[in-house]
Nucleic acid binder design. Sequence first.
DNA 1: ATCGTTCTTGTAATCGTTTACAAGCCCGAC
DNA 2: GTCGGGCTTGTAAACGATTACAAGAACGAT
Lengths: 330, 330
Amino acid sequence: MSRPTIAGVARAAGVSVASVSRVLNGLPATEEMIERVQRAVDELGYVPDARARSLKVGRTFQLTLAVADVGNPVYVTMMRAVEEVVSAAGYRLVVTTTGPDVVDEVALVRGMARGYADGLLISPIRVDEDLVKSIRECEVPVVVAGNVPAKAGVDTVRANSPKGMLLAVDHLVAKGRRRIAFLNGPADTVPGAARSKGFTEAMKAHGLDPIAVAEASDFTFAAGRAAAPAVLGGESRPDAVIAANDLLAVGLMHELAAAGLEVPGDVAVVGMDDSELAEQSFPPLTSVNLGSAERGRRAAELLLARIEDNQRTPRRIVVQPSLSIRRSTP
Amino acid sequence: MSRPTIAGVARAAGVSVASVSRVLNGLPATEEMIERVQRAVDELGYVPDARARSLKVGRTFQLTLAVADVGNPVYVTMMRAVEEVVSAAGYRLVVTTTGPDVVDEVALVRGMARGYADGLLISPIRVDEDLVKSIRECEVPVVVAGNVPAKAGVDTVRANSPKGMLLAVDHLVAKGRRRIAFLNGPADTVPGAARSKGFTEAMKAHGLDPIAVAEASDFTFAAGRAAAPAVLGGESRPDAVIAANDLLAVGLMHELAAAGLEVPGDVAVVGMDDSELAEQSFPPLTSVNLGSAERGRRAAELLLARIEDNQRTPRRIVVQPSLSIRRSTP
DNA sequence: ATCGTTCTTGTAATCGTTTACAAGCCCGAC
DNA sequence: GTCGGGCTTGTAAACGATTACAAGAACGAT
């Protein structure tokens, strides 16, 4: 009653295992051979064992996408794009969650050496020496969606947060807002650091000083709510807030409503990531599109290319942002 | 420069492969043996190959969770719960997306026979004969989060939608609403059919006739928006709408706002699933909690139990709903 | 010293595939 | 009739682990 193996099929068809394997892999064979094998396969309901196959051929035809938090809608955008590319190339995509800790990311990368997948696409939220080292030493190709040092010598696709921040500030300034505040996520994360730097630069470019800068404990809705007072509670209220991602922005907007402030009338709000949530929130959220879909697509392509040829020199792609203007800004 | 194998480690340590394997698996060995193997392992950076291991021991220590749409926030709730249970049991969780078509689900279940994972947790959106058949015949344990016929003889954990609908209608009626409409998802899906039936029963229990019933083309935000006119455009406007899930409810609320209608003043809105989106939407959405987290947890437990003992008689668990009241209802 | 027991270690078979190589067959050309 | 070439098919050796079994070492009891 146990699973039929290729040997069973061979016996049933009265041929050798090699012939069965050849027929199944579409290698040349006579009509009669194909016929007999096919019949035996159907009859027994044989399905080849992927473990044995991949042990022999050294490939699993699986790719892993690792993200920090499945609850963050930016990852669904990315995931959709990645899925499309890799499935077109004949790979299955499996998604795993790392959580916010860098040690888990390192463990994941190290674990890839076990041969679960042919490649890893990781979007790390925190990066340290260990992670870079483990990526460089990893037995399977890795591409990073995010920012790691150039010396790491690894394919990366990253966003241009400073440029994105500039778009956001430009837009707010054009609409007459000057008292601009910034709601960041944890500054010890890669996106947190980049966005903080970008915000400071963009404000300087306009000769403005921030009204307030707050740091949420996480890139989540709840953290956005919790950090709202820090961004609003200063002596002079901001007339615009830029949040480091959409979840934070939406959390903030809830607190604005609770405080009786209108968006965008009293306070304009700009998010980042332009995820599905930006469209779904109310009012719909003006958001900096950091090209998540394109980043996913390009990253997937880099991964496939590196699987083809592991010797190619690492590429570092930067995708340009745009601004999706919706009703949370005037 | 290629990956070290157990044979390489054995050679480096000057012992046999069996001894290396034993040390690595914590079987009894002398201090000196452990020491030598450990040193060789560290030196070579050896990591056992999961494919080879699982080929031999017949287990991969991976579990697959298959969902229809990663963009649906109800799945993130479920995913979190499942992840917690299975990782505590020493399994890795991988997530794959099936899309809305039942043929893809069937292909997935069939594909499990290839041995990618030790078990499958699937939340099918459409169910047909083929799917039931493929689940029953599947080589690896499968548990279904959702509703399949009892005769399928498979472990299931499902929600009690009729009861949930009753909670929603009870609540609306208690708040004085009588002109209640229903915004369903596709009626040819399992949740669509169940929620439709539940709604009809609940209304009947209160002696009410629905003001309008509309069917969105999908359980998505966009479909909710598109179907809004059908639910609002009748001769008499509803004073309350129940949506078959949170995404539909939020889509509807956007159209209500566009039409200048207040929530809950003019129209109360109730969603279903009580996902993170219900909390994040504005106004926060009253939503029927169908116990996604608990369903995920229980389903994961059933799966683990069945992996332990494949002979146990299938269980069918129903988890009870509750109502999370927020500001979209009076 | 011999025997039996227990403990450690090594040899080799096995899991289910793929594939290099060899063998067999058929066929036409000389 | 023999030979060589091209196909088709089969045999057996991998892939990298685990593990049953056997052999050897150590040791205490007689």
